[in-house]
Design a protein around this nucleic acid. Structure first.
Lengths: 222, 222
DNA sequence: ACCTGAACACCGTTCAAGT
DNA sequence: ACCTGAACACCGTTCAAGT
């Protein structure tokens, strides 16, 4: 892991280099700093995880001073909230698109296929952006942060709509659709957590999703 | 949130106070530093979350120098791994105890009750120790850290044993018990994640668990 | 309105030295 | 074997000042 040529003090080291202004040949106003910070943050999150995400580092990459992000994000948590919010929106979009791609047939078999397609999109997102997913479902989001919470509702609405269609088509048992939606959503989230935490190999996620869909759609006819 | 008497520079401030040795009237060797650090860490984790967990702070509370923990935990992640490992062990114990308390009747109705009891214990742990739960299922645990992984297997063995009993008693459909176990575990974990992330009110967790157990045990008879 | 620079109070990690 | 003290390279956050 650690190379044998560990870092040694060097005469070329400039101790206060960390915040070296590389923001000289640039207009005083960045223009779209908020968007730049978010984009860099998403990349850093995916590549190195939450821990490695620092405001000072993002500022450096954006070519502004370390205090500049303050205008756009009150603190580090506000940045994380914005990331989670964007994550929910993107996940909702991807699930919806996958469901629509799977056709609009409202028959029994067609519905299972759509459910599987939606669940598959969910899993792909969870595996690709595991750190983001953790952020989205972090316990911290409980108290404040209305942004993520609202974006999350969009995702649940997509799942809820799908469940409703399944019930209308007779592919799912009738019953409180909201509880059905929560249970199915929780199952997806749980499988995702098992995969991203390495409890099960990613290859087995598909089989588990298939099992889950089968379990939910099994006794459709009364 | 912030009081009006914000912190101002004060002549009494001793800049280097942070690591003030409060470890003077103590033998040079602490004796049980590792256990003390873990206990303090568990408390800090529960009260203030992972972010607030610092090795320096733990060292201060234990009354040792900031470099002392190094002997027992190679770095911060090693401490987190140890916490996750202990968490899995404790969760496995609590689920097992709850299942045993619910009786040993292997009949249909008895099994559902035992399954609900185990699931309930899982949820209580997840709500009480939300931050620890996040640590246990963090994506970071993927690569290294064999400790948590092994302790997690104990938990899965408890769930798997329960599933196996249900199948033998005819309370669960026959089929690959391992996949059943994973799916049920994932469902529990997903419900827990929804509760701790505030997606659903804690009061609704019980209803969801009941729904999940009903779904799994529904079509037992072939 | 948006950004900079300096300052403050923290971190984790390393390492020679102490007991 | 276990712990200390000093040092290094980072953090987040604040705030007066600049444009």
């Amino acid at each position: 892991m650690t190379t044998s040529t560990a870092r040694l003090p060097n005469v070329n080291d400039r101790p206060d280099d960390q915040d070296r202004p590389n923001h000289q040949d640039r207009p005083y106003h960045h223009g779209r700093l908020r968007a730049t910070l978010l984009a860099e943050a998403e990349r850093a999150l995916q590549e190195d995880g939450v821990e490695a995400l620092s405001l000072r580092d993002l500022a450096r990459r954006a070519g502004v001073s370390h205090a500049a992000p303050r205008r756009h994000f009150a603190d580090r948590q506000a940045l994380l909230d914005a990331l989670a919010e964007a994550g929910f929106t993107r996940l909702a979009d991807e699930v919806q698109a996958a469901v629509e791609d799977a056709g609009t047939a409202a028959q029994d078999a067609g519905f299972s296929a759509r459910l599987r397609a939606g669940a598959g999109a969910y899993m792909r997102f969870a595996v690709r952006d595991a750190a983001l997913m953790e952020l989205m479902f972090a316990a911290k989001n409980t108290g404040d942060s209305a942004g993520p919470q609202e974006a999350a509702e969009r995702l649940f609405a997509v799942i809820g709509g799908l469940i409703g269609q399944g019930q209308q088509a007779g592919a799912l048992p009738s019953g409180d659709p909201f509880r059905f939606q929560l249970l199915f959503g929780a199952t997806l989230q749980g499988i995702a957590a098992f995969v991203t935490s390495g409890r099960i190999p990613p290859g087995q996620a598909d089989a588990l999703v298939t099992d889950a869909v089968a379990l939910f759609t099994r006794n459709a006819a009364p």
